[in-house]
Amino acid sequence: MLISFWVNHIYPNFVAYTIMMELANLYQRALDFDFLSVEEGMYLFEQAPLADLMHIADELRKKQVPHGKVTWQIDRNVNTTNVCIANCKFCNFYRIPGHAEAYITEMPVYRKKIEETLKYGGDQLLLQGGHHPNLGLDFYTTTFRQLKQEYPTIKLHALGPPEVAHIAKLEKMSHHDVLKALKESGLDSLPGAGAEILVDRVRRLISKGKCGADEWLAIMHEAHKLNITTSATMMFGHVETLEERFIHLVRIREVQAMKPTDANGFLAFIPWTFQDVDTLLTKIRGVHNLTTPDEYLRMIAISRIMLPNVKNIQASWLTVGKETAQLCLHGGANDFGSIMIEENVVSAAGAPHRFTYKTIQEAIKEAGFEPQLRNQQYGWREIPDTIVEQTIDY
């Protein structure tokens, strides 16, 4: 009788009390900007009510970004080439060398796209491509110099650690020397592309041809030492475990902690969900993106909590849609990213969402915030008087 009473009444209350006390301790440590461990982060993710996580993350956002505005950007994703030998299992965009649809973007195309970008109010090109086996450092430095010579006000947010690693391998150069040459030729900032999950077990399964996790992080650390501002990303919802997501977050935080004091380092973190339409990961391995809005909101809140040394957390409206992204603004996110005048890679795997400069501001206002146009360094911009609204085919 006593055993039955313990099992049915005392023990459940004891367990609930223990969880409540542990959560209260972790909540306070998060609010104190402590570095939580992988295990502690997972405990919060699995045990904390979503409302609590969003509240803690929102309080941290108010401290780290006290102006309270939601920033956004106008830029264009232009692909230097679609030729790639990395063979990522989640990418529908790349073409193998010699393919009939393979291309390398030439200057007349850049000029046309930049003129359109300026017309639509943009100030930046996000330049990314693939691991082209024949495009070395000279190709990129020559391209960057010419773009800067013809359009000195355009910022180049270009390449990413996997491409830097690929160039360094082709040229038999150090990461430092490649990054230094790219910066001198016009590189303004380095995207967090190709992070996926920073655990090599996962990378071998989904992107075996890219650099490993250690090299990705080493390149970012080298960029920070050269005072090149970077961002960090995480693509989740495929073959990774929950623990591997948290290892990823801790590794980002550790590299950020090593940056020079006068460097921005990782100025933003963007978690986004795997897009599975027609990808090899789905066709061959049967992997589908089963991420729910609730889970994405948890990841946004956890990102703010686990990365107290990264100031800006961006909601990926491109992959989760307007409504979920709006909720993220109440759960730790302070940035809505770019309207992306052009985006070809993620869209090729099924991301259908689109914004114009007007509709992104309307979405931010609907969520209860004031929109603020920014540049890549998170400096505020005024919307150009001559801006033209882009026509989008939905």
Rank of each mutant, 00 (worst) to 15 (best):
L2G: 10
Q149H: 15
T282Q: 04
K225T: 04
S4Y: 10
P133S: 06
R253T: 02
V7T: 07
L198W: 05
E196D: 11
W317T: 06
A325Y: 00
P384F: 07
I364N: 14
L50N: 09
V83L: 04
Y357T: 14
F144Q: 08
Y394C: 06
T291R: 01
L280S: 02
T230K: 10
M42E: 12
P308T: 10
I85V: 14
D335C: 09
I302L: 14
Q376V: 01
V345Y: 13
P293A: 03
H166I: 08
Y296F: 07
D278Q: 00
L249P: 02
L307Y: 03
F236A: 01
E116M: 06
D52C: 07
L2I: 13
T273R: 00
I96Y: 13
S338N: 02
R204P: 00
A100Y: 04
T359S: 15
T153R: 08
L329S: 09
Y140V: 00
P97Y: 09
R145A: 04
Q28F: 15
T282K: 08
L31F: 11
R111M: 08
A195L: 10
E362I: 09
N77L: 13
D123Y: 10
L23M: 13
A165Y: 11
I392K: 06
L50I: 12
I10C: 05
V250P: 00
L137N: 08
T230E: 09
I270S: 00
K283F: 01
R204N: 14
L226E: 11
K62S: 04
T273A: 01
K311I: 03
I206W: 06
L118A: 06
I206L: 10
H175D: 15
L44N: 13
Q314K: 07
G129M: 09
K155F: 04
L307K: 06
K283P: 02
I341L: 15
Q390D: 09
C88M: 09
G331R: 09
A333N: 11
A181F: 08
S207V: 08
Q28T: 15
D58V: 12
N79I: 01
T324L: 07
A333V: 10
P97I: 12
G337E: 05
L280G: 00
F35W: 15
I167W: 14
K169H: 12
M20V: 12
I247G: 04
W72A: 05
F35N: 15
T71I: 06
A168Q: 14
V109R: 13
L125H: 03
P384G: 05
T71G: 06
C91A: 10
A168R: 15
L156G: 11
P133R: 06
I56C: 07
E254I: 02
G350A: 09
G332R: 09
R145Y: 04
G379H: 07
T233I: 05
G130D: 06
I219H: 06
W6L: 14
Y378N: 04
I313N: 11
E323M: 06
M234W: 00
G212R: 07
M42N: 11
K225I: 00
V277L: 01
L198F: 14
Q146D: 05
V83Q: 09
T142W: 03
A223P: 06
R245I: 01
K69N: 07
T391P: 03
K180L: 14
H248W: 02
G192H: 14
